[in-house]
Each structure stands twice: as C-alpha cells, then as structure tokens.
Design a protein around this nucleic acid. Structure first.
Lengths: 247, 247
DNA sequence: CGGCAGATTGAATGTGGTCAATAGCCGTGG
DNA sequence: CCACGGCTATTGACCACATTCAATCTGCCG
C-alpha cells in the first residue's frame, strides 16, 4: 500500500532524506558527492519504525535488500540445526544489516529490533547497479563488508582466547566506542539488549554475565543499574579487555 | 624484473592462464564469459611458489592485492596487543586471501604457507576498476566476501557453543567438504597444518586436539596417522559436529 | 497488587587448560 | 647406515574457570 501523492502526516515521518540524515557521515553515502547522494537517496526505501521485538526479516527468507539502521538497535539470531540460537551480531545506527546474505540469497539469520528502531531499506540489485556508476559507493560497500570481516575476526579471538571477564570488558569497550563515534556519550549509555542476549553473544551463561558485571561494579570499573551503564574507569577496563591482567 | 619475451623454462611455470586453470569453476572468474576472462586474466600477476613457512604478506603491511590460492594452503595469523597469535583462517585452493584488508588498507594478519603453495596476485585497484565493467565479476566479489562473512558466523557459533569434540568433528567435516568440492577425496586427506595450528584455530589446547583425535580413532570415527586422515564414519562425525550427541 | 520475565546469588559439577614427562618423527651429519 | 638433536605429538595428573541447577530477588506491565 504505497502512500498517496499527498501523504498524511504519519507518512511524512519517513520521508527523511540522506542529505539531512545526521548519520550520513558514517553511513554508506559517506564518500559521495552531493549530486551522487541524490541518486543514492532515490533508491532508498524508508520503512515504518519497528517496535521492540518486531522482526526485520527472518532466517531463510529471500534476500532482496540490505538495511541501514537509522535509529534504535537490532540483533541477529541464527538457529542452526537443532542447536540453540546463536546471537551473531548487534546492529547500531549507521550500520548495515544483511550483507551476509548476498552469497546464497537467503538471510542467514533472523533480525529483531531490541527497541523502537527505524531502518532504511536498500534494494540490493539497485545498490549493486548504482555501485557501477559510483566508484565511491562501491568502495564504501567493499569497505563495509571488509570491516565486518575484520570485526568478525576480532570476535573469534574474543571467543576463543578471552576469559569471561575479558569478554565483558571488551563488549563494554566496544559499545562505548561505537556510541562515541555516533556522537553519544562513551561513558554513560543504556544497554538495549538483555543479559541473556549479551551472554548468548559472548558465549557465556547469563549467570556469568550477571556475576561479572557485579564484580566490575565492586571493583569500581563501572556502575550498572539494570540496563544503565556508567563506565568509571575506562582505561582499566581497556587493559582488562586486552588481557593485560597478567602484567 | 619482468620476464623477457622468450621466457626461460622456470618463468614459463607461472604463465598459466585462468582459461586453463582447473580451479576456474570455483575461483573469481567463475561467472565470466570467455572474452571477459581474458580481461580478468590480464590483471593477474603470477607469483613464484612459496615454500613451506614463507609468508605471503605480514600483518600491518600496506594492502595492495588480494590473492587467489592456486595450489597448496596457507594460514592467517593475527597477533593483537601483547596476547598470543590467533589463527583466523586456513586458505585452500580457489579461495581468496586478503579481502579483510580492504577497509583500512592494511593486512590484518600475517599469511604463511603451510606447504609449497602457489597464488595468483590480483591488484585490488585494478580488480575494483574491472568490476565496474564486468557486473558478473562484481557480483562474484560481493559473494566471496558475503560467504566469508557467513563462514565467520559459523565459526563464531563453533567457538561459543560447541564442545571440543564438536569442534574437532566440525573441523574435519569442513575440510572434507572443501576437499570434495575441489575434486579430492572427501574421506582421505592430509592435514597441512600442525596440531598446534588446529588447536589455535579451534580455540583448544594442543593436548586437547591430540586427545580427542585419539578418542575419535578409538571410536572408529576416523583413523589418524600423523597428518594423514581417513574418515571412517562420516555421518557419525556429522551428527557429532552438529551437537546431536544428546539425542 | 499480583504475576511473570528478567536478573542476581549460591553451591556443586565437569570440561578443558596447564604443567610435566614421554614417545615418535624427520632431517642432518658422522 | 645409524645416531643424534630438535621439534611435534601423545599421554597422564591436577586444577580452575565457567556451566548448571536451584533458589531468591527485582522490576515492570497489566
């Protein structure tokens, strides 16, 4: 049901353009000339906001689009075989969702909103085609994918070599950095995900997450109240995250 | 030092072309028309074979090229901070090395040959530029990266949820599949990596790898003699790898 | 105010790591 | 050809970290 020519106020909300988006310096069009942004903007489809718990797409659905997060946050869950679900990623504003579906043209996980979340839908065939004419866009796309690969490697290192304490510390540092880059406080933020999500993501039991957050609080590294986090000693947390504990 | 017009025998070895490469159906030019393969072929640089233990590039070096493995195998090691090295990947023939370096234009790990190995060097700027004219090449490149991301997610699941037994089983199954796709036996192959490499990759101690391989042998799942592996009960190994142990 | 999911805390268990010793493999050189 | 040295692999004993199970507590929405 496409919006009529004279859209009502509710539809206007989704008419925002890349040119006016505060994330444009982090998002795909980051390297584009103003005239090119117009072209890019033209292929974007705005979406009605997702409410908490609503899914953007489900595992196994046909891949058609990648999505740029505009506000809010999402998680990606992959259930494989009879095993439990694995939380493979959290997505924050300006990040691209769905790049891992290009190869076999099926989304490899279910992506769900952790809070009220708005995304821009970017049909991939049009993105691909546009990337032919706009080398900067193509480069940015390659970079996004490459970066995600690098982040994955970092995650593998976390999962295979780090202790539970180091994982939690890394997780908090990672969030802090991502918030900072997006213009939010690096020291004070709200976790949009549950302890269970954190545990699932980090390969830890919920109880372990809880215990360690408690311990961090005792050690004056952070103060945690429910989902509100305050980082009290960033550098200590950083050295913990890098496994400097044995120094 | 480019080869003279009439190249000596030793240089001829590296003149092989994509058109005659037995891997062409798995490698990047997979989807190209014959005429387009010529263009692709023209940007490839053949390399002298790497001997066991020689490095293709080191962590932190400037990114210039991706590499397609032609024969042999490699490992990628990333050392972060003061921590130990993390083995992030093994590369087999037809696979692309270096895609994770695009974003920050530095190789994020050191890649080393596990045995005598030949690779094709593909300067990335020329690849990128060619992908503008050849949509199929671009698609294939996107797919390769997307696939690597998917594989990384699978690896994360392995590292965060699977037991040591399941990891080893998954590892053997994965190798078996990769060998099969390349036309080698899925049941009988030689590990080009040491136990230490396997352990590092799977997030296990060497001793654990050794123990579990021994146990698998007792259980008649495989027979292992040094680096020679024979898979005796593929389906049992597969169900083990998927964590069906509790069924 | 009640109900329920999410979060915390405690005690017991087990998987895999560490340390240490031994055994096997392979290339080198006598 | 065999002996030696170094490295890789195997095996064993012990220990620790994180999981599991279970109970309790907190906060939130109806």
């Amino acid at each position: 049901m496409p919006a009529p020519a004279t859209a009502p106020r509710s539809a206007r909300l989704h008419e925002t353009r890349c040119q006016t988006c505060s994330l444009s310096s982090l998002c795909l069009p980051l390297a584009l000339e103003l005239s090119d942004v117009d072209q890019f903007d033209a292929i974007i489809r705005r979406r009605a906001p997702l409410k908490k718990g609503e899914t953007l797409f489900r595992q196994g659905e046909a891949f058609t689009s990648v999505f740029a997060v505009r506000s809010g946050s999402l998680k990606q869950l992959a259930s494989e075989g009879n095993g439990e679900d694995q939380l493979t990623n959290f997505y924050l504003p300006s990040e691209l969702v769905g790049l891992d579906a290009i190869d076999d043209e099926l989304y490899p996980g279910t992506v769900t909103a952790l809070e009220t979340t708005t995304v821009c839908e970017i049909p991939f065939d049009r993105l691909d085609h546009l990337s032919e004419q706009l080398p900067e866009l193509r480069t940015q796309l390659f970079r996004s994918m490459s970066k995600e690969m690098r982040d994955d490697r970092r995650m593998m290192r976390l999962l295979s070599r780090k202790t539970a304490d180091e994982r939690l510390a890394s997780f908090l540092i990672g969030l802090s950095n991502r918030f900072r880059r997006r213009g939010y406080s690096a020291y004070s933020f709200r976790l949009s995900m549950s302890r269970a999500d954190i545990g699932n993501y980090l390969g830890l039991a919920v109880e372990t997450v809880s215990r360690i957050l408690g311990r961090f609080q005792q050690q004056q590294l952070v103060s945690v109240a429910g989902r509100e986090v305050n980082i009290l000693d960033l550098s200590a947390l950083e050295s913990l995250a890098e496994g400097d504990g044995c120094l």
